[in-house]
C-alpha cells in the first residue's frame, strides 16, 4: 500500500491506527494530530450533506442527522471533486438506514431535496413561448406525434407520503406539523425560476405523465401510458408544465422547434 493509500484508509476508518511515519516536533503522539485530519474530512462532508438536505436535518434533528450522515460519509465517500452532487446516493442510503425506519417518508424527502440541488445547478434553457405550445395543443392532428424537450432543471417526484407538505412546512422558522398527514400520497414538481428553486404539488398521475415525457415518450405515448389511471387529467398535467415554463422545445417527426 502506498503512503497516501494508507493515510487515506486511516482517514475514513477510525478503527485503524494512525499511519506510520508521522512525527511531531515536540515528540507528542502524532495520533492526536492525525485526528485533526479525520475530523476535518468527516465534518466538512457531513456539513455539505446538512446544507443539501436541510429538511431531512430538521425532521430528525441535528444529532441524529450528523450520526447518520457520518455513516454515509465514511462508507460512501465522494467519488467526485464536485461536492454539489455528493448527495446523489444519500436518499437510497437513508431508505436502508434502519435507525430511521420509523420515519418511512424520510428517504423521499431526501429525494425531493436532491431534485432541488439538481434544479439549482442545471443547465440554463429558454422556455418555448406559450403561443407556440398553444398552437400545438389546439391541433389534435399534430399532438400525438409530437414530443417535448423539457427544461434541464425540471424534476418530478411521486411519493407514497406527503413529501411536498413536509417540505413546505419546514420553510418557516417554527414548523407546525399538526394537521399534516404524512401518509397521504403526494407528487411534487421542482423547477428553478429566476434564481429560486420552487417546489409545487401536482397530481400524482400528472407526475407519472411528466416522467414519461422526460424518458422521451411522445405526447401520444405518454397519454396512452397514463390514461388507464382513472384520476389522470391531461389538461392538469400539461397546465403544470406550462405554469412551470418547463417546455423548451417541440419535436415533430424530425423537425425541432425551439
Amino acid at each position: 500500500m502506498s503512503a497516501q493509500a494508507g493515510f487515506a484508509a486511516a482517514l475514513l476508518d477510525a478503527a485503524r491506527p494512525c499511519p506510520d511515519g508521522l512525527v511531531a516536533w515536540n515528540g507528542s503522539d502524532p495520533a492526536r494530530r492525525f485526528a485533526v485530519y479525520r475530523n476535518n474530512v468527516v465534518v466538512s462532508l457531513v456539513d455539505a450533506l446538512a446544507e443539501a438536505f436541510p429538511v431531512v436535518h430538521a425532521l430528525v434533528g441535528g444529532e441524529f442527522f450528523r450520526a447518520m450522515a457520518q455513516v454515509f460519509v465514511t462508507t460512501q465517500p465522494p467519488r467526485s471533486r464536485l461536492l454539489a452532487f455528493y448527495g446523489e446516493g444519500f436518499a437510497d442510503f437513508v431508505a436502508a438506514f434502519r435507525p430511521a425506519a420509523e420515519l418511512p417518508w424520510l428517504a423521499d424527502v431526501a429525494r425531493l431535496e436532491m431534485l432541488r440541488v439538481r434544479a439549482c445547478h442545471a443547465a440554463d434553457a429558454e422556455p418555448l413561448p406559450q403561443a407556440a405550445i398553444g398552437a400545438l395543443l389546439a391541433d389534435p392532428a399534430r399532438l400525438p406525434g409530437a414530443s417535448f424537450g423539457l427544461h434541464p432543471a425540471l424534476g418530478v417526484l411521486r411519493s407514497a407520503h406527503a413529501v411536498v407538505d413536509l417540505w413546505a412546512a419546514h420553510q418557516v422558522d417554527a414548523p407546525d406539523l399538526s394537521g399534516l398527514d404524512p401518509a397521504r400520497p403526494q407528487a411534487g414538481l421542482v423547477m428553478c425560476e429566476c434564481d429560486a428553486v420552487t417546489v409545487t404539488e401536482i397530481p400524482v398521475p400528472a407526475a407519472a405523465f411528466i416522467e414519461c415525457l422526460q424518458a422521451g415518450a411522445s405526447l401520444g405515448e405518454a397519454l396512452d401510458a397514463c390514461s388507464a389511471d382513472g384520476g389522470f387529467d391531461p389538461a392538469a398535467a400539461l397546465g403544470a408544465l406550462l405554469r412551470a415554463q418547463a417546455i423548451v422545445s417541440i419535436r415533430e417527426g424530425d423537425k425541432d422547434h425551439e
Binding site: 503512503a3 497516501q4 493509500a5 493515510f7 487515506a8 482517514l11 475514513l12 511515519g21 485530519y37 476535518n40 474530512v41 466538512s44 462532508l45 455539505a48 465517500p77 465522494p78 467519488r79 467526485s80 471533486r81 461536492l83
Partner: peptide
Amino acid sequence: AWSGHGGAFFNDLLPLP
C-alpha cells in the same frame, strides 16, 4: 496538498512529505 486517492475525494487539504 492532496485531497483524493484511489477514486475517493476527501474535501480536505492533506499533507505530503
